[in-house]
Design a protein around this nucleic acid. Sequence first.
DNA 1: GCGACAG
DNA 2: ATCTTGTCGC
Length: 221
Amino acid sequence: MNWTDWPGTIPEAEAMQERLATQVITTGAVSADTALVAGVDVSYADEDRLAAAVVLLDTGTLELVESAVVTGRASFPYRPGLFAFRELPSIVEALATLSGTPGLIVCDGHGLAHPRRFGLACHLGLITGIPAMGVAKNVFTGEFEEPGPHRGATSPLLDGGEEIGWVLRTQDGVKPVFVSAGHLIGLDNACEWALRLTPRYRLPETTRQADHLSRQVLARG
DNA sequence: GCGACAG
DNA sequence: ATCTTGTCGC
């Protein structure tokens, strides 16, 4: 990856998102036979210390196959809509150390469901060329109706009449998650994967395992 | 101007 | 994201 064009200011970062958003492909399906699925999460401590974790899970058993963690320091200020610029360098570095290649990357955050239609999942998918999707715990942009109470219920996430994601109930009676396409995958297929990855808990196993790992490493310094 | 605002 | 006790419920 070439980081020489990496933005150093907020206007530059926003301009980059608007430019790259035109290259995103929000259609496609990741084969159910795909062997490996990746999960990505980043934890923070004081003074911008961070730990970016990437896990590779067996799609059949959802068990950990391989993982990598990169610790570093956030080089970009947090700003809603731009947090990908804080995390991407470390995430990409961690991904590069893995020996296996996932058929899908699941991000902790949004993809298309972003003010400029270019959330972390879009950016990571574009950088890696690997299908990527977003599963976020909270809405960022758009309006929605509460989906039905049971696992599998969905409702559209709309922004000015445009469908930018689906609100998905991953377990009976729990708060729904927000699924959106990142790159090289359609929304319907992304939701199928989200359900496949949540046999027991609200959040995908990919996100849970990456989260645990990043926290664990951060705690040890 | 005021409030909202992924992680 | 992170700071944080107890508490209700399976």
